[in-house]
Design a protein around this nucleic acid. Sequence first.
DNA 1: TGCCGGCATTTTGAATTCATAATACCTTTT
DNA 2: AAAAGGTATTATGAATTCAAAATGCCGGCA
Lengths: 227, 227
Amino acid sequence: MSKIQHRNLYREVADRIRELIEHGELIPGERISEKQLCETFGVSRTPLREALKVLASEGLVELLPNRGARVMQLTVKMVKDTYDLMGALEGLSGELACQQISDEEIAAICDLHEQMLTHYRNREMQPYFKINRRIHESILAAANNEVLQEMYNNLSYRVKRVRYSKKMTDNFWRQAVNDHEMMIEALKKRDGKRLGQILRDHLCNKLEVVTLAGVIENDELINAANA
Amino acid sequence: MSKIQHRNLYREVADRIRELIEHGELIPGERISEKQLCETFGVSRTPLREALKVLASEGLVELLPNRGARVMQLTVKMVKDTYDLMGALEGLSGELACQQISDEEIAAICDLHEQMLTHYRNREMQPYFKINRRIHESILAAANNEVLQEMYNNLSYRVKRVRYSKKMTDNFWRQAVNDHEMMIEALKKRDGKRLGQILRDHLCNKLEVVTLAGVIENDELINAANA
DNA sequence: TGCCGGCATTTTGAATTCATAATACCTTTT
DNA sequence: AAAAGGTATTATGAATTCAAAATGCCGGCA
């Protein structure tokens, strides 16, 4: 029995705008016309503006007083900063998870790990990433810290756009899988310090940033290079 | 030359409500009457409701659809979770700070540290905490990661209310000062790993939570015990 | 030709109004 | 007297309206 979802318009609208940003249909830096969005969504300006306020405090859009809203522009530094943060959060999630994770949960993660390995051997990128993501989510969930989850998801959303532009070279991929092996090992031993360290240091996300940093200057804007 | 502050009403209102919450004039769990707040602030419902949306995504208030807003109720678990997170963030700030902090910045922090020690020796609680806070803020600033700063400040705001109820026993205090000595040492050596570890493990905030946890059950609400 | 200033238009900010969901109160019935 | 149901009231959700700021356009002027 799932909770009844009283969907307010502003939540709905916020979700839709998030999608638009994620899929690159709203260009970063470009001015968001309230009227236009109102028309496309078929709502009045009130819920739309409320949605923009929420998105602004999530860091997805920027509100310039008397000058409307625009999609937050990401710089390489911002992305790097965000990834540093996410690394720390993943590390914490690993430590906390080890303190209380059940045998069943560990088994489930090991199972996911095996599936991931299969996808790796078959060089199936998309399925690989999907499982990869689920593993990290499982650890995050096992940490049993809602505040942490909320923060992580928020950060994750901010940089979701740039994930499309990642390049997965064979070397990086192998390294990533190797890290996951170590992770599983640490998890089985419930070695929180070690799992945390692995997650912090070797966040597979890092390589994406490295890739990016090679191309774009530190304070330069990230162009909306999406799929 | 400071930036011109275009103060929108909703920002102003949000700030005011934050103050009300912080000072315990809005009781956690108690329903926030829109009309009443509108009258006290002398604004219409539109900016008020926008402010509430912002505060909600900051985690300070809770919006129940069709049922108005209420000040977020803190449970001991939530506070503990938040402090775990803040510990991780402080740890990160230490690591990052060591990578790029200048000699001048280190000197400034050492200076603050000396001031703090004086207040400690004189048993001047309030000044001690003030300087203590400034030290942590300095390290956070030296980390040069705006996203991190933003997150930390947000988390800090959420639990600001409970800080009033902390008890500083002699033992805890001595321990805290001792940690600070180690911190300074690590900072001088620019030993990021170590500074991070010290900050993570021995966040002086932790003791407050411990104190609290001794009195209140884990999922119990924290009563609005303010100064 | 290029720049400045004023008017018109557009867009945002805030108040008001209208609609609908929730709550309280009162009546009715057992 | 207590409970159930229905109506009245109140509070919230959303649209509309009004006000003010910003932008754009045009003409005048150097």
